[in-house]
Amino acid sequence: MNRWPILRYLLSSHTVVLVGFLLGVYLLVAVIVAVAAMFTEVTVSGVDIAGQVLPWLAAGYGYSAAALLSTVLTHGRTRREFLAQHPVFLLVTAGLLAVVATGAYAVEAVVYRAAGWTRTFQDQRVFEAGDYPLILLAYVSMLAVWMMTGALLGGAFYRDEGGGLLALLPAAVLLSVSGGANGFLSLPFTRWGLTSAPEVAVVTVVAVAAGWALLWAALRDVPLRTRVAS
């Protein structure tokens, strides 16, 4: 058998679907902006507004990790293999999706300039228009942390519902701490003022690692559920 079968499988199926999905999101944004332009003057970045929805979609996708684990076990793999390979898949996928997002910003910049529209970003963004390396990093940070946090919540609820409620606390900490750094969830008490790339990167690594460790703790010996209902 190939090494890292779960990672290979996820990259060849889930990653492809997720990238396609994000391209679809930006296509939809383009259509909405085009339609809006017929009635009113365009003043905000459509791609950046979409960035307000993406964290929740990322968390929602991450939530399905526990269900994924149960299918992986059915096909003869182990929790440990899954817990080692699934986060790697999340990081690689977050990177690819961030590249797509950054590309969307670049394309949008060209289109807005040609159309003569003004292009403002959300207030709390850590990046300026044209600072593509920081856009990429902020998106990697947001996608990785939110997917991992979604996975943590899904894993905790899969283990047991009380544990799921308990996991809401670390989840909130992960999201708010990292959100202050990558600018996607900015709360008054988390405006760290960390805007340099290395600072955002460090906060991201710590948050993802913490999420991974908690996910490991939640799922490392979890029994597969026997559903009574249906």
């Binding site: 058998m1 076990l73 003869g76 793999r77 182990t78 440990r80 293999e81 010996d221």
Partner: peptide, 9 residues
């Protein structure tokens, strides 16, 4: 338990 050599079989 958690042994891929066994579970894969």
């Amino acid at each position: 338990f958690e042994n891929p050599r066994a579970t894969s079989r």
